[in-house]
């Protein structure tokens, strides 16, 4: 059975609405509080996360995951002195 986009929206609309509301309330809470999170790297990441949601790219969940991830360095083994094939260093 193939589910249509409309059927998914029917099922998830209220939940999605509620989640957007939660985000809005959290941002209001941050704004009401003393001080600011401007310049905090986590705040920047959250802003970029929202941009991913509004963008047109595919695989948004993967993109959000990568946004919140440390980057991979293919030369890590050399840097750690754990060269290939040698496991008892």
């Amino acid at each position: 059975m193939e589910t249509s986009a409309t059927q998914i929206l029917d099922r998830e609309f209220l939940e999605l609405r509620a989640r957007i509301l939660e985000l809005a309330a959290s941002f209001d809470r941050l704004e009401r509080a003393k001080g600011t999170v401007e310049g905090d790297q986590r705040w920047d990441l959250l802003q970029q996360g929202l941009e991913v949601l509004l963008g047109s790219q595919e695989e948004r969940a993967r993109a959000v995951q990568l946004l919140f991830s440390l980057s991979y360095d293919p030369d890590w083994r050399e840097k750690y002195g754990l060269s290939r094939g040698v496991s008892n260093g």
């Binding site: 995951q65 990568l66 919140f68 991830s69 440390l70 980057s71 991979y72 360095d73 890590w76």
Partner: peptide, 9 residues
Amino acid sequence: EDKYLGTRM
């Protein structure tokens, strides 16, 4: 944040 790097390693 460590998952992607660690999984690749």
